[in-house]
Amino acid sequence: MKITVDQGRCVGAGQCARLAPDVFDQREEDGVVTLLDPAPPPERHAPARDAADVCPSGAITLTARP
């Protein structure tokens, strides 16, 4: 799994940092998403998928690794 985030789309709701805190964080100043782990190990795939699914602004993209 490979993860990318679009900081321009992010609305800082924090769902990703709540659901997958090992993979996503929020910038201190404006709550915008930061990516802690762009290629997480398998045990973090399910929470990362949840985070991408519920992201209110569609700022998280998951791709299967080629």
Binding site: V11, G12, A13, G14, A17, R18, P21, D25, Q26, R27, E28, E29, D30, G31, V32
Partner: peptide, 12 residues
């Protein structure tokens, strides 16, 4: 306006 506020309501 939302951008001014989101940093104050982060998960952390």
């Amino acid at each position: 306006i939302r951008k001014l506020l989101t940093g104050k309501f982060t998960v952390r």
